[in-house]
Design a protein around this nucleic acid. Structure first.
Length: 489
RNA sequence: CGGGGUGUGGCGCAGUCCGGUUAGCGCACCUGCUUUGGGAGCAGGGGGUCGGGAGUUCGAAUCUCUCCACCCCGACCA
């Protein structure tokens, strides 16, 4: 157990906050609910971002940027959409401040805007207002645009990375000729999200459909990836929406088909956010702090030199230089820690910060022509000959990557329960925690009743569902779907 | 928005009940020396409108009033 952070098993919430702050990922901003993403945390986000950016570019998407400010009236054009976001919109009503002898600086009442402007909580409306200008013919389709941006949702309760007033994300907005093409796009992106989560973040996810009540405001269908955190709660890690013609109709976006018929465009939108960083922390972290999957770790290898004096220091520098150069040549992200702190202090600190591999090099190793390699995922530590180091480290990194995934998968499986009666359901939600796989009669009423009584919600109707022969866990009627219930973030 | 709590160097706290020296402790920070293979030691040093305002008093971190901020727990959310 670490000296500086709360115990994960005893106080999960404090553990999480401690790790985020003390590992240097983020800090609180001065406005309630805002956060500063510090360099180490931002490097982590950038690696996630770059991985996904490459995936969408490979599948024909292009990046663009739309404005932060949206006319208030735009939001109202799609009924469900406005309903979903109205309660959490930041609104710009004035454009000037002025100094006041009593109160210092005040909002200048003369600067009130005629049409108030909202800060985007998401960009469907402004993007579709533009798509109307850009789309006339089937030749303009599909239109596959993504943007990396910040959005603002004025939340009541916030938590670093998981729910902040302002957060960073990507939002893809595509336009298609047919419903089928939109559906295909929605599922393609969901698959990329699965890949991002599982292959890069080493975070196993369930893929599937959201229930009617959990879907995005304005969507026909919402698909999602859903992960289990180490406190056994669920985290929605990404969503992909088939918007049908809802926004096309709201913004009057029509195109001419090959047959010269006018038709509304079919749309999708999809997003993942900095919440993924929270997911990584809560999927892999342990009592010592973070454990970062090598593919997204800002520093895959941290070199800790062990020296007594300036003389030792230069000897070690000389010995270490080619080792590091070799790793860098192989595209390994290396960090050297030459600070004055003691080696023990650095060991603990880099363990807390989740560096996958620590490379210890002292005079003793130079004598033996080797170095000590310690892995964060399972605490193994061994001496490796100098000429074997690069190869060994590269294979270790991929080993750590898959080990973290397997550990997380095993944890999820151990905490997933198949249940066929409501008594067991209640016991698990109340005492055990975890995912519950069970039958559901498909009604809103049942879903709501279960939520009210147990706080568990339908996280996902998984693609691999098999509702035949199942009964609804609540009503006992034949199940329409097999679903996963859990308490969620 | 309801319930609870906390505001004192950068961080964490003591002191507040019962007013009275120069507001104290730990961590962090700076300097020097000795250390360095699992969170180093010693010595010296810097840093405070005690959340803001008003009041009571010879005297307020401490008592009164008031405002503000933040945190935790509940209803909504990527």
């Amino acid at each position: 157990m670490s000296k500086n952070i709360a115990s994960q098993s005893k106080d999960y919430a404090s553990w999480y906050t401690d790790v985020v702050i003390k590992a240097g990922l983020a800090d609180y901003g001065p406005v309630k609910g805002t956060m500063v993403i510090k360099p180490y945390g931002f490097a982590l986000w950038e690696l996630i971002k770059d991985s996904f950016d490459q995936m969408i570019k490979e599948t024909g998407h292009e990046n663009a940027y739309f404005p932060l400010f949206i006319p208030k009236s735009f939001l109202a054009k799609e009924a469900d959409h406005v309903e979903g976001f109205a309660k959490e919109c930041a609104v710009v009503t004035h454009t000037r401040l002025k100094s006041d002898s009593d109160k210092g600086i005040i909002v200048d009442p003369d600067s009130r805007l005629e049409e108030e402007v909202i800060v985007r909580p998401t960009s469907e409306t402004i993007i579709w207002s533009m798509y109307k200008k850009w789309i006339q013919s089937y030749r303009d389709l599909p239109l596959l645009i993504n943007q990396w941006a910040n959005v603002v949702r004025w939340e009541m309760r916030t938590r670093l990375f998981l729910r902040t007033t302002e957060f960073l994300w990507q939002e893809g907005h595509t336009a298609h000729e047919t419903y089928e093409q939109a559906e295909e796009e929605t599922l393609l992106i969901l698959e990329l999200y699965r890949k991002l989560a599982e292959d890069f973040l080493a975070m196993p996810v369930h893929t599937g459909l959201k229930s009617e009540s959990e879907k995005f405001a304005g969507a026909e269908f919402t698909y999602c990836i859903e992960a289990m955190m180490r406190d056994k709660r669920a985290l929605q890690a990404g969503t992909s929406h088939n918007l049908g013609q809802n926004f096309a109709k709201a913004f009057d976006v029509k195109f001419q088909t090959k047959d010269n018929v006018e038709e509304y465009v079919y749309a999708t939108s999809w997003g993942v956010s900095t919440r993924l960083v929270g997911g990584v922390i809560m999927t892999h972290g342990d009592e010592k702090g973070l454990r970062l999957p090598p593919k997204i770790a800002p520093f895959q290898v941290v070199v800790i030199p062990i020296f007594r004096n300036e003389n030792d220091k230069s000897t070690i520098q000389e010995y270490t230089r080619p080792i590091i150069d070799d790793l860098i040549t192989e595209n390994v992200r290396v960090h050297e820690d030459w600070r004055k702190e003691s080696p023990g202090f650095k060991f603990n600190e880099w363990e807390m910060r989740g560096a996958p591999i620590r490379l210890e090099i002292g005079l003793r190793d130079i004598e033996n022509n080797c170095a000590i390699v310690a892995r964060r995922d399972n605490n193994e530590k061994k001496s490796i000959a100098k000429n074997m180091l690069t190869g060994e480290i590269i294979s270790l990194l991929s080993d750590i990557q898959s080990n973290l995934f397997n550990q997380a998968l095993q944890f999820r499986d151990e905490n997933t329960f198949r249940v066929d009666n409501y008594d067991d359901f209640k016991i698990i939600t109340k005492e055990t925690g975890g995912f519950i796989r069970c039958g559901w009669d498909g009604t809103k009423e049942t879903e709501q009743a279960i939520k009210d009584e147990t706080k568990a919600t339908i996280r996902v109707i998984p693609f691999d569902e098999n509702p035949k022969k199942l009964v609804c866990v609540y009503t006992g009627k034949p199940a329409k779907h097999e679903v996963i219930f859990a308490k969620a973030y």
